[in-house]
Structures are given as structure tokens and as C-alpha cells.
Simulated assay, not measured.
Amino acid sequence: MLDIVERNRKIFSNLREEVDCIISIKRNHPNPTFSYITGLVRGFFEGSIAVCRRDDGRVKLITSGLDKVKEEHLDVFVVRKREDVERKVRDLVRDCSILGFDARYTSFRDYRLIRRWAKGKKLKDVSRGILLSRLKKDDHEIRLIKRACKISEKVFEEILDGLKEGVSEREVSLKIDKLVREFGGDGTAFESVVAFGKDSAIPHHIPGMKKLRRNEIVLLDFGARYEGYVSD
């Protein structure tokens, strides 16, 4: 079972400097740090803000309410007006002197927002501490990675059975994408590589309409994504 509070306490223990809370903003692109400190791996949560405090390890989540949140380890605040978002963030970090953020997943625009919300407070990049915490996977993470690997294995077996003369690289690539979802994955871990013949010498070949011929080498490089974790 996922213990998000213990996970976040581990992050704070890995920080070089004292940080009172960590703030992470989710936009319309993946933010692994947001997912890691909240435990939210599915859903859009665009514009949502997570504030994780050192004193209790709990996460305060400010969201628009478009995504349904059931997790008991989150204190959820539904805020729909922009000015109310800023007011709520200021309130949550009022007694924090030093705020941490992950520079790897914080745009310059969001950095300026955080700096405005935390006016008069110190900002620290805590990406190293988060990375150190993520290096050692907990039991919950290991189960998810194993599940992603199992999905990839099933897809690989299915693809091998279906390889035949005349099939194109693109057809195989599309089939990989389809099978990953059919077997329970959330999508491929990255853009799948399928290459036939001499193109198999290109590690990052983009699948095209080239068709498979007898006795040609086939290169397959793909992975599955499952609840935020991937196989390769």
C-alpha cells in the first residue's frame, strides 16, 4: 500500500538544507515530481498546485475541481478563480520561511509565480533531494514497475507471433500501442522503435512504410507505462 506521507518525509530527510515545504505545479504535460509527492498518476490536474509540508508530510492540493480526487492522504481545496488560487497558496505557505521547488519540472513562468506567491521567503531547488529519494524504490513502486514489465512481455510475445512478410514497420508500431492498452497499460513509455533490415542499425529509427522481407533483421524497442512507471 502506498504510504505517501512516509515517502514525502524521506524527501525532506534527503535535502541538504532545511526546507519548510515543497511546491509543485502541474500543467498540461507530465510532471513526475507532482505525481510523486501527491500519488496522483492518472487524471489531467492541469493548473493544480501541490504544497507538501515538512511538519506532517501531508500534501495540500489546490485544484479546479475538474478532476475527481478520492485519496485520503490529500487535503483538497477546490478553487476556481485565479485570484483565489494565489490567496490560498499564500495562506498555505504563510508560516514557511524556505520553499522548495523542483527546477527540472518548473518552467520559468511558474518559477515567477512561485516567487510572487512566496514574496519575502527563500526559494531552494530541491531536485537533488527528490532524485535521491526516487533512486530507491519502495514496495509500491516495485509492484508498478513489475506490472509494466509484464505488460511489455505480453506485447512482445504477441508481436512476435504476428510478424510476417509484407507487414510494415508502422503497422507493427501501431499494434504495439494498441496492445499495451489492451493489456492494461496507460500507453507506451516512449515512441516505439520498429525497424527492418538495414534500418535496424539506427537505434532511434522512426517507423515508416517499409515492409518486412524474408530473412531480414527486426529491431523492436518499446515499453509500457503503468500508473506513472515504465518498462523498457
Rank of each mutant, 00 (worst) to 15 (best):
I206E: 14
R27K: 09
C149E: 06
N8Q: 03
S200Y: 14
L219K: 13
D186A: 12
A50N: 01
E72D: 12
I159Q: 11
L2Q: 14
K198R: 10
K136D: 10
A201G: 10
V155D: 02
F108Y: 09
N215I: 00
N31S: 06
E171F: 00
K146T: 15
S173V: 13
Y111I: 04
C149L: 11
S192K: 02
F44P: 04
V230K: 06
V194H: 06
G129P: 06
S152E: 06
A50K: 02
Y36R: 14
K26V: 06
A195I: 02
G187N: 10
V85E: 09
D56I: 10
G228L: 08
T188P: 04
T188W: 00
H29W: 11
S192M: 00
I98L: 07
I159W: 03
F196W: 07
N28P: 01
G197D: 02
I25W: 02
S64Y: 00
H29V: 08
F12H: 09
F12W: 12
V79K: 15
I22F: 12
K211R: 15
D91L: 09
R82M: 11
Y105C: 05
V230L: 08
E169F: 15
E72C: 05
I22D: 06
I37S: 01
E182R: 15
E72N: 12
H73T: 05
E191Y: 04
D55F: 11
M209Y: 10
I151E: 03
V41Y: 04
F222L: 07
R115E: 07
S127P: 03
I114M: 06
S152V: 00
F45G: 01
L40C: 05
I151V: 08
